[in-house]
Design a protein around this nucleic acid. Sequence first.
DNA 1: GCCTTTACATACATTCGTGAATGTATAAAA
DNA 2: TTTTATACATTCACGAATGTATGTAAAGGC
Lengths: 221, 221
Amino acid sequence: MVRKTKEEADLTRRQIIDAARRVFLECGVSHTTLEKIAATAGVTRGAVYWHFRNKTELFFAMREQAILPFVDRVVFKEDDSDPLYGIETALREIFHILGDQPEVRETFEIISFKCEYVNELGDMMQCTGGQLDFLGKLTEAYRRAEARGVLRPGIAPDDLAHDTFLFVGGLIKHWLAGRPDERFRADAAALIRTHVALRRAGVDQAGPVSPARSSHLSKAA
Amino acid sequence: MVRKTKEEADLTRRQIIDAARRVFLECGVSHTTLEKIAATAGVTRGAVYWHFRNKTELFFAMREQAILPFVDRVVFKEDDSDPLYGIETALREIFHILGDQPEVRETFEIISFKCEYVNELGDMMQCTGGQLDFLGKLTEAYRRAEARGVLRPGIAPDDLAHDTFLFVGGLIKHWLAGRPDERFRADAAALIRTHVALRRAGVDQAGPVSPARSSHLSKAA
DNA sequence: GCCTTTACATACATTCGTGAATGTATAAAA
DNA sequence: TTTTATACATTCACGAATGTATGTAAAGGC
């Protein structure tokens, strides 16, 4: 068929990735055939093989696209007087991204539920570099919170970071799944607030989480 | 071939399930063929089709076996003077089971990482009945803890239960994956202790979690 | 002792998916 | 302007997996 310009070829490539995402989501990665992807994208398998060596490479290309928004948008402010609020903000941003960008959400759904981690993908079972990075950022943020004295005493920042890391992973998963009882989807922000409030010194309320936060020493029944 | 007795037939059935678990774990459910399972079990595909209608039914049979130990062994004592300790005990029991029984561990690994949730399995993405049950039990336990006054005030038991539910789910997943930095595997008990300690009233230590637990009102730097 | 059912094995038909080979028309380089 | 590399489409050869149909020998009831 007609030879395309570079721009058109690049568009075709993106369309193939988009099609792959849709078919992966519907059929699961294993049961997805390149023929289905090609048909969905409005091309033939030949085109797919032109742009990607095989299904795995296509999968990684799709994954790559979805990870980018997070490195940009999920940040822990280092100069904040209340690092705990910074943590809360960062966590909420994760779900803003998932809510705003359907492609990202769908890709995460695929990664979480529509993919089997064997052979080349076996390594992905373990935490990826990005996840370990996130864990490290959390740990640093909790250390800053401890130094600021806003942290509940007696528990190591490192342990808190791990606890939060597990919390976030679980929340993403259940947020994506969309149930049970919809709480995880509907009340993600509230669950995050509760989670962070548990770490605050002198807390007696899940209370306000705005920068104007509760005093450290209030203590009530 | 020779007709077997009922006992021998039942043994064959179990061997097929065992074989399925091994092959599922290695190849992923989708890429597992009934031929591989049959060969691993030392029978032919005919035998597999005799005992199970198809791969899905075999998968559910395997899954069923692995869930049983939890309903037996993960219990929240209702008459405990410290329901928080009961919660901690229950959570730890989960990982005892996973550590003790390789078949259970392997099955959970399959469910978590080697399976795509599409079509008939699509419903499994959501929380299963057992999981919702677990969430309910957690909520009740936290309510009892609140009534006993051992719970940190200001946070709803329901929210605590959800937070713990996410924590456990995440910990299971990372415990199974075996990394990052092995902390999740090696220090599961410590992470559970920390998690529960965060909920304790008047806490200043992650401190002792034995039945001789810290007093409610101690407060130190 | 016969008959039926059980517990498999074997064989077959069909479909599906892959990768590669080949064709082809044009954009871009020379 | 000619050439060449690009961006695909089309076709083919092959294996692999599935479900079913059929074979068979012994268990177990009568």
